[in-house]
């Protein structure tokens, strides 16, 4: 099943369910490689496409039978000061925020989750043990969300490594309004991610 449009914001609805595999790629290479993996996987797979990514061009590796493994996150940018996790369209915002943070002397590590269930906890924990801080980013609502799950796992399994409270960036807790100004206020932005990363690095 592939789901696009506003349903991409409801990633957590699917990722809540045992027995499902939930994929939410950001770039074209992952979209191609994960879709192949999904087709070859005998389990039910929910493949979340983001409609607003359709117009963006990405490189695709010139490899015969390009397949991306399910359940493996990808470190998109190396950094030592703060870990930022994101999936789907939010990866682009997280990378932009990391560039902005770099100018201010903060090196963020950006993890593209790619698979929401099963979540690649090991990659996240490994990064947090290095950076000691985590900011999660998602386009959906916060309650019972992807970020809430990640923060719970990090707190449970890397508590002693944390130098700041795990922090979430997500859509505000209200139905998404149509009006352009309210929509912009509702959704995560580069600025909101930068602010959150600075808060956990006490800058």
């Amino acid at each position: 099943m592939t789901v696009s449009s506003s349903w991409a914001r409801k990633s957590q609805w699917y990722s809540h369910v045992p027995g499902l595999i939930v994929l939410a790629p950001y770039d074209a290479a992952d979209a191609k490689g994960l879709l192949k993996a999904a087709i070859r996987n005998p389990n039910p797979v929910v493949f979340l496409e983001h409609e607003m990514l359709y117009g963006i061009e990405f490189e695709i590796p010139d490899v015969k039978d390009w397949v991306v493994p399910i359940g493996k996150a990808k470190v998109r940018r190396q950094g030592v000061d703060v870990t930022i996790t994101a999936h789907s369209r939010m990866v682009g915002l997280a990378l932009k925020a990391a560039d902005e943070l770099s100018k201010q002397g903060i090196e963020a590590e950006v993890i593209d989750l790619r698979t929401l269930r099963p979540l690649d906890t090991d990659t996240i924990l490994e990064s947090v043990r290095k950076t000691n801080r985590i900011v999660t980013v998602e386009e959906g609502w916060g309650q019972s969300g992807v970020g809430a799950e990640i923060c719970a796992r990090v707190t449970a399994e890397a508590f002693d490594y944390l130098d700041a409270p795990p922090t979430r960036v997500h859509q505000v807790d209200a139905p998404l309004a149509y009006a352009a100004n309210l929509e912009a206020m509702s959704l995560p932005s580069v600025e909101k991610i930068v602010d959150a990363a600075k808060a956990v690095t006490y800058r």
Partner: peptide
């Protein structure tokens, strides 16, 4: 005018 920013958290 656009809705007032205070409208963000109303009608829920």
């Amino acid at each position: 005018p656009e809705p007032d920013p205070s409208e963000l958290m109303t009608d829920i």
